[in-house]
């Protein structure tokens, strides 16, 4: 799951090394537009529909937070 997430992030913003950041939002690597695209990519890749209440920047601020969100949606 981790590799898939990193691959999605790299495709979204190839100019950044996401392994160097603990907070993609605060570090300016993802903005609100990227978050919407990321939600759509995660939905498609993992065959889920992330709950609308979870579409908050903080849930996409690190690979760990994204993993937690996916687990909440039944992805192991």
């Amino acid at each position: 799951m981790r590799e898939k997430i990193i691959s999605i992030l790299n495709e979204l913003r190839p100019e950044f090394d996401f392994s160097m950041s603990n907070n993609f939002i605060a570090d300016g690597m993802l903005d609100s537009f990227d978050v919407i695209n990321l939600v759509n990519e995660l939905d498609t890749t993992f065959g889920i529909s992330i709950d609308g209440m979870d579409v908050l920047p903080e849930n996409f601020s690190s690979v760990e937070n994204i993993i937690a969100l996916l687990k909440k949606n039944g992805i192991e």
């Binding site: 939600v39 529909s49 992330i50 709950d51 609308g52 209440m53 908050l56």
Partner: peptide, 14 residues
């Protein structure tokens, strides 16, 4: 946020 939730609840796309 509630409006976003409403649309995503359809689970058809966004």
């Amino acid at each position: 946020q509630n409006l976003i939730y409403k649309v995503r609840e359809y689970r058809k796309g966004f």
